[in-house]
């Protein structure tokens, strides 16, 4: 059984690589890269440490959030700093609410609200680019010394955080290591670099998993570093994403 799984993984990997050398199957490539950022998994619980730097940052105390995500929904709860402890942001599709202990009721907020620094909830929750974006192969080029396919992603749904993304996916590991995010008008908003030092097991196979994301604002020196830990792949009850259970 183990041998068959290994054989399938090898064939799949080789197929993707061989096809991609000419022109990769972009949707399969995107789906593979999504898995390393929790896309297509049944559910996920993880901790995220966010640190903000830059000349406009007046408080660089890190925030720690525990995130639960499944399908199109996520629930982020602040564990640190002390004054934010217990604050929560619920996102279901593009519907979002914010609440904290003592608040009269959850407040409806727009997707433009950020979690912390440069990070929107879409940056922290599971990535489902294969589902949410239409991909087009642009070129093959080296990024940080690693050969990459460069894809142009255009929003295919109305619940995406960004309108267009240029995405660098490594030829060998099939993980996204760099992304540039653009607005509808084509203005570059920010860019991100990804590190995959975590490992998770999917159907008995260990795959690389995101450990760090560095988001840099395109116009200022503001930077947010997100570090991912305590990763558990597990189903999350649908009722956890019900607004009535937020308080």
């Amino acid at each position: 059984m183990k041998f068959i799984k290994l054989w399938i993984a090898l064939v799949l990997g080789l197929t993707l690589t061989q096809v991609s050398r000419a022109e990769p199957n972009v949707q399969a490539l995107l789906a593979a890269s999504d898995r390393a950022r929790a896309g297509g998994l049944p559910g996920l619980v993880w901790d995220v440490r966010a640190t903000n730097t830059g000349s406009s940052v007046i408080d660089n105390e890190p925030s720690v959030l525990r995130l639960k995500a499944a399908d199109n929904a996520s629930l982020a709860e602040y564990l640190e700093p002390l004054r934010s402890k217990g604050s929560r942001i619920l996102q279901v599709g593009r519907n979002m609410w914010f609440t904290k202990p003592g608040l009269r009721k959850p407040v409806a907020i727009s997707p433009r609200q950020r979690l912390t620094g440069q990070a929107a909830i879409g940056d922290i929750a599971a990535t489902n680019y294969a589902h949410d974006y239409k991909a087009k192969y642009l070129s093959e080029e080296s990024f940080n010394g690693e050969p990459c396919y460069v894809l142009d992603l255009t929003s295919a749904r109305d619940n995406t955080t960004y309108d267009r993304i240029t995405y660098w996916i490594t030829v060998r590991r099939h993980v996204g290591i760099h992304a540039e995010f653009f607005s509808v008008s084509g203005k570059r908003l920010k860019q991100a670099d990804f590190v995959y030092d975590n490992k998770i097991s999917v159907q008995g196979t260990a795959i690389p998993f995101i450990s760090k994301m560095t988001i840099t604002d395109a116009l200022t020196d503001a930077e947010t570093v997100l570090e991912y830990s305590e990763i558990k792949i597990e189903a999350v009850h649908r009722s956890e994403f019900d607004i009535a259970n937020l308080q």
Partner: peptide
């Protein structure tokens, strides 16, 4: 939580929304 979709709560609840 009984299952993935059903939950019951009892006690002093803040019943606010909107």
């Amino acid at each position: 939580r009984f299952d993935s979709r059903t939950s019951i709560s009892a006690g002093r609840l803040l019943l606010t929304w909107g």
